[in-house]
């Protein structure tokens, strides 16, 4: 096959995908800026003038940030354990991605069974008499974050695992033999070398958490909706496409403000690390 043709064929699928996404994105933004064919920013003004929307945006970003943080705190040690595991690593990987084999709705219902007012935890602790009234474990931020961490943590684990597998154990041993205690070795060797994977994980989890719909809907209750859920409802219940588009654009922009600098930093870091590696 001639080389230009081969290149064209290989590029075609991604070109089509990118084209479709780009058209969708342009149409999304433009429909949010149009009323009756006229350029109009009323939707944005409306959004910013409604305290509940501003609050919702704040809650969305905070929830996403906390979800990312907890996913990182759980994900890094897990990824480290798997990377250094001497036995059947594939089995551990299977356990990690196991949540993905179950539909997100089923998983959220699972949490409702555990966290609900008459759920597993509450019936147990009321039975023991530790508390008189059931604890509020869901229909609040706690439930949403818990559910999101459960869903998104595997992405963090796999992103970090992929870099940890590239870091030879001997680098940590070298640090220890030079007198580096565990905290020092972590800070000066493991952390800087795994940073590209950590940043990828943060980006993935943060983006997916800001756009989450089902988990906040089921575990967050009515008063704790996130922007993704709100957009979903604007579209499915009120058929208000322009408003949904405006909300989606706001969400997109606020997410990119966080993600783009991270991505730029990651590129720079990865290039620096590559330069240091042996040929």
């Amino acid at each position: 096959m001639p080389k230009p043709l081969r290149t064209a064929l290989l590029l075609a699928p991604s070109a089509i995908l990118m084209g479709v996404f780009l058209i969708g994105l342009v149409r999304l933004v433009s429909s949010s800026l149009m009323i009756d064919g006229q350029f109009d920013i009323t939707h944005y003004v409306d959004i910013l003038n409604r305290p509940d929307y501003v609050q919702m945006l704040g809650r969305t970003l905070r929830t996403a940030a906390l979800t990312t943080l907890f996913s990182l705190l759980i994900g890094f040690p897990t990824a480290y354990y798997v990377a250094r595991y001497k036995g059947n690593r594939n089995f551990l990987l299977l356990l990690i991605i196991f949540p993905w084999l179950v539909s997100i709705v089923v998983r959220s219902y699972g949490w409702m069974v555990i966290l609900g007012p008459r759920g597993l935890i509450n019936s147990f602790i009321t039975w023991t008499g530790l508390v008189e009234r059931p604890l509020r474990l869901m229909y609040n931020d706690f439930g949403v974050i818990l559910g999101l961490v459960h869903v998104l943590c595997p992405f963090m684990i796999i992103a970090i695992l992929s870099v940890l597998m590239q870091i030879p154990r001997s680098l940590e041993e070298a640090s220890m033999s030079l007198g580096g205690r565990p905290a020092y070795s972590f800070r000066t060797v493991l952390l800087p070398l795994s940073l590209p994977g950590i940043l990828t994980g943060i980006t993935l989890v943060y983006l997916m958490a800001t756009g989450a719909i089902v988990t906040p809907l089921l575990l967050g209750g009515l008063r704790n909706t996130m922007l993704g859920t709100e957009i979903f409802q604007e579209v499915m219940h009120f058929f208000n496409y322009p408003k949904a588009a405006a909300l989606a654009t706001v969400l997109l922009v606020t997410a990119l403000v966080v993600v783009i600098p991270i991505q730029i930093f990651e590129r720079w870091l990865a290039r620096r690390l590559r330069e240091g590696e042996s040929h």
Binding site: S170, R272, S278
Partner: peptide
């Protein structure tokens, strides 16, 4: 070390 284990980021 056998693979030298030089720190690639330094």
């Amino acid at each position: 070390f056998q693979n030298l284990a030089l720190f690639p980021h330094m």
